[in-house]
Design a binder for these strands. Structure first.
Length: 733
DNA sequence: GTTCTAGAAC
DNA sequence: GTTCTAGAAC
């Protein structure tokens, strides 16, 4: 055993038996000679007092130690945290080292001590007593004559509650050293280490002895069974087989537990005791809810998917009832963000009708990633889909969980669910480093793997069969505006890349400098490739022979998009010099916008004469890639080989696409258009523009949209945002 | 805007 | 192995 006796901080190796490498240790440890504050972190029964007493007794090295114990600080009775803080401050000021003997399981509980130690220039250490819950509970239950009178059945309940709130200590909290003790041997080593710490010695900084938590590859049912079994095993009282329990013997279920885990205050204990006493038979049976598992699961995405809520709620309630029947020591919570959630109220009503124990299953309004911090609801397992949607752009609950849990969970999930098939689930331990674990005490994430888009691969195969795709590419990148070339390529549009045939004055080089020349100051500079529409708008006559140009007026040019993103996709390009994008649009441009809109509607109607199944949207990109204000008229089939990537899709189907009618209205009312310049929307997950289902990639999305028959989201059906054969003509001029 | 391509994902 | 994405270059 290495002790610090006579050793300099930097030369001191980590304690033997430590699984940590001490790699995180600061280069040089803290200076010797200053007092140390050891903040003990552990539930009742974890051996805090044993440690404190042993160090005080065995401190052969001569370092003066003071034990500050909340259970005894009030004239040998339990005191307050304030009293403890004062005692710690007094001791440190006297140059004594202090052992803070209280539970300190939550970060908030220990923060004041850390701060105090820091202020008084003490070395602030954490000693995390991470003994198995079973051991702590067993000891706490069976001990007698405990200082805080926490023993017997009450202790089991208290320990269990506390452990749910446990937050692993981190150096970032302000500790210079954290030592984890995972069993009695570790505790013994810690005792030896601190007992042998001489007045001038110091210990190296860093984290020592932390256990690495491995993934548990079991399904949620197995997990629950496991919790179930261990709870019986842990219980010290008469063991009731869970399935045999009578309703009256069930465990008390906390609605909003108020347990001061740091101090095991007498008030909290009293409150708990009362609860237990009120619970008929609970104390006698000894069936405390050790190993209690609360699983929160998110509501289905009712806004986006058009589920039959009535059926869905039936399924939820049936499944919950089935689950509760099988497992006794679990609690299930359906969570949704809004009070108005219809699925929530349906489920609530149906659960009540089915007489499901409302303490074992209830609905909850709140953010599933902040149940504890914002909702005072302690859940140790949350369920969500574990597919490709668990990523920042994954949308909804997935994105929320990803954001809350960080990448560590994603990695852990991948490790666990790598080969999982749809329809199964896996329990993923939330990594210790994850904020979801640290702040919300969520220890596990149950991830049912949703069945991925089942919309057949036939379309994919067909697309894959397009051998000419590669050829097309080659054709498209060639200059294409001569008659000869038209015939060769079958293409007939101005070339967006600026290789305009017959244009010797290279107007496609127009850039920000040109803008300035024309007296227009815009913040954006345009690449050479982005000049084609500008060039066309300024000199449409040069391209008048192109089949792509449908109409030219003084105010606008109507052009077939060279890379149409749908069966029909045309642009109405303004001819006003200096009007590059929506950002430049002002009230004075309203007549132009209306004319452009009308032209767009006219062309949409023309296309509808050929194919009345088409539906069109007219709108602008919030931030266009190409210079010169242009209105897109795009059919909503999005059936085009040119629609190739996420950006293409999202630029036409998210808030990035601003409907012309809305822009006109905004300019009318505010004189300017609000544009969503946030690039994040373009990186969002791929969702069907009709039914809003999410899809993992473009090919799968495309095969879905060819078959999706859902109606459009309601807001698109308003204000003539969609132009179809059934749309009544609306004249914007 | 597109093309090309490395490398990730499958 | 093939498919798909994302970033650089234009």
């Amino acid at each position: 055993m290495d002790t610090a006796a006579g050793g300099s901080a930097s030369a001191l190796p980590p304690p033997s038996g430590s699984t940590g490498t001490g790699a995180e240790a600061k280069e040089d440890g803290e200076r010797g000679g200053k007092p140390v504050m050891v903040v003990l972190i552990g539930p009742p029964g974890s051996g805090k007092s044993t440690f404190a007493e042993a160090v005080l007794d065995g401190s052969a090295a001569g370092r003066p130690w003071v034990r500050v114990c909340q259970d005894t600080i009030g004239k040998n009775k339990a005191g307050t945290k304030m009293q403890c803080l004062k005692a710690v401050a007094d001791a440190l000021k006297e140059g004594k080292s202090v052992i803070v003997d209280r539970c300190n399981l939550e970060r908030e509980q220990r923060a004041d001590f850390v701060k105090l130690g820091d202020t008084l220039h003490a070395g602030v250490h954490a000693l995390a007593l991470e003994l198995p819950a079973k051991v702590c509970i067993s000891r706490a239950v069976s001990r007698t004559g405990h200082e805080g009178n926490l023993q017997g059945g009450t202790a089991a309940l208290v320990v269990n509650r506390m452990l749910q709130k446990k937050e692993t200590p981190f150096l970032t909290e302000g500790f210079s050293r954290i030592m984890f003790c995972n069993d009695d041997t570790d505790v013994k080593k810690a005792i030896e280490l601190y007992s042998a710490l001489g007045p001038l010695d110091s210990l190296p900084s860093g984290v020592f002895g932390q256990k690495r938590q491995g993934p548990i590859q079991v399904g949620i049912m197995k997990f629950l069974k496991k919790a179930d079994a261990s709870s019986v095993e842990k219980s010290n009282g008469p063991k009731l087989k869970l399935s045999e329990r009578k309703p009256g013997q069930e465990n008390p279920l906390p609605k909003q537990e108020k347990v001061e885990s740091g101090s095991c205050s007498m008030e909290a204990k009293k409150e708990l005791n009362e609860k237990i006493e009120n619970e008929e038979g609970a104390k006698e049976s000894g069936s405390y809810d050790i190993g209690y598992c609360t699983l929160a699961f998110p509501s289905i995405s009712t806004a986006d998917f058009q589920f039959d809520l009535d059926r869905a709620s039936d399924i939820i309630v049936d499944t919950v009832a089935d689950c509760l029947q099988k497992f006794d020591n679990i609690r299930l919570v359906l969570v949704d963000l809004s009070k108005k959630s219809r699925i929530l109220s349906l489920v609530k009503d149906k659960a009540a009708k089915k007489s499901i124990d409302s303490s074992k299953f209830f609905t909850f309004v709140g953010d599933i990633t902040q149940l504890r911090s914002k909702g005072s609801l302690q859940c140790n397992v949350i369920a969500n889909a574990a597919n490709w949607r668990l990523k920042p752009g994954g949308g909804g609950v997935n994105a929320a969980i990803f954001n809350a849990a960080g990448e560590a969970l994603q990695h852990a999930t991948k490790e666990c669910a790598d080969t999982l098939r749809p329809g199964n689930s896996v329990v993923v331990p939330v990594p210790l480093t994850s904020p979801l674990r640290q702040q919300e005490a969520v220890t596990h994430n149950d991830q049912p793997v949703s069945v991925k888009s089942a919309s057949g691969d036939s379309k994919m195969k067909r697309e894959g069969g397009h051998e000419s795709e590669r050829m097309k590419k080659h054709k498209l990148i060639q200059p294409i505006l001569t008659k000869q070339q038209h015939e060769c390529t079958g293409s007939s549009a101005p070339n967006y890349r600026g290789n305009s045939v017959g244009s010797s004055d290279a107007p496609n080089q127009a850039t920000k400098a040109d803008n300035k020349k024309s007296g227009v100051v815009t913040s954006k500079s345009w690449g050479t490739w982005a000049q084609s529409l500008y060039e066309l708008a300024m000199h449409p006559d040069k391209y008048k022979n192109s089949d792509s140009i449908l109409e030219v007026s003084d105010e606008f040019v109507v052009l077939k998009d060279l890379y149409p993103k749908a069966k029909k996709h045309v642009l109405v390009i303004s001819r006003t010099n200096g009007l590059d994008s929506l950002a430049d649009v002002k009230k004075e441009h309203l007549p132009l916008l209306r004319k452009m809109h009308s032209a767009g509607v006219k062309w949409a109607q023309k296309f509808l004469e050929e194919d009345m199944s088409l539906e069109f949207r007219l709108g602008y990109h919030s931030v266009p890639s190409m210079r010169q204000l242009h209105l897109h008229i795009v059919s909503q089939d999005f059936d085009s080989a040119s629609l190739k990537n996420k950006k293409h899709w999202n630029s036409f189907t998210t808030s990035f696409f601003r409907d012309s009618v809305d822009i006109i209205e905004e300019i009318e009312q505010h004189g300017a258009a609000t544009t969503n310049s946030d690039d994040k929307v373009l990186a969002m997950e791929l969702r069907c523009h009709r039914c809003k289902s999410a899809h993992p990639n473009i090919p799968k999305l495309k095969s879905h949209i060819t078959n999706c028959k859902s109606s459009f989201p309601s807001h698109l059906l308003e204000k003539n945002r969609l132009v179809s054969s059934s749309t009544e003509h609306m004249d914007c001029t």
